[in-house]
Design a protein around this nucleic acid. Structure first.
Lengths: 112, 112
DNA sequence: ACATTATACTGTATGTTGCACAGTATATCA
DNA sequence: TGATATACTGTGCAACATACAGTATAATGT
């Protein structure tokens, strides 16, 4: 059952991770830094998850990336775009809706 | 951008729909009835989504189904199993965690 | 009486995405 | 000089929401 739970957890990350990154990128950040930042906030995201995700979000035009080669090691910094903000808003509303639906359903279960 | 939003919405349903069904099946119900029940609660789930989902959850042993052929039309009734309850609990905890993480991240953004 | 709509399912195909696996290359520190 | 941290790229797989297509009975309208 652990495998199955892991699989469900993965599914639950879909969407959530996109919103999380969109929220995070209100401030300019680069991939590796985001991982460390989230770790400090008590959340672990896989490199293998984040990097492809950033590429997808950029391709969608929800975030914009540009290379910083001024320092020792080249880093790709990302920020959210206007479109990204709209998407994030939409997604957060959806999230609320889901929470409401779930609450309503479990509430009904309690009543009966 | 509407297409992209739809795609994100779909991804956000993954996991959520599983939890929703697990919550709903605290009471014995059948597929079509669940669709109508949710509609009354203001939520629309596609038949094409629900039926395959029910099959998967049953295969996982999270819900148990059995056919009722006593009435006019055969219906397959499902209920949550003990395993299903454990999974649901786990998932709801994960959901909380995600909410917390998201709140923490957006909070930090506000502060800075 | 006959068509339409609601009921109640099954089966299979597809696109998206989290994550695994593998690889590249520089910097730091013991 | 060898390990560890930094900071990425590229490709492939499995799971799931949803689309598309189909089956079959009951109720309702005309």
């Amino acid at each position: 059952m652990d495998d199955q739970m892991q699989s469900l957890a993965t599914e639950m990350n879909r969407g959530f991770l996109q919103v999380l990154v969109l929220a995070l990128l209100e401030r300019k950040m680069y991939g590796y830094g985001m991982i460390k930042h989230l770790e400090e906030a008590g959340y672990r995201i896989e490199e293998n998850t984040l990097y492809p995700l950033l590429r997808r979000l950029e391709k969608n035009g929800w975030i914009a990336g540009d290379w910083d080669v001024s320092e020792t090691r080249p880093k790709k910094f990302y920020v959210i775009t206007e479109t990204g903000r709209k998407v994030r808003g939409h997604a957060l509303r959806l999230w609320e809706e889901q929470a409401t639906t779930l609450a309503r359903v479990t509430e009904v279960e309690r009543d009966v």
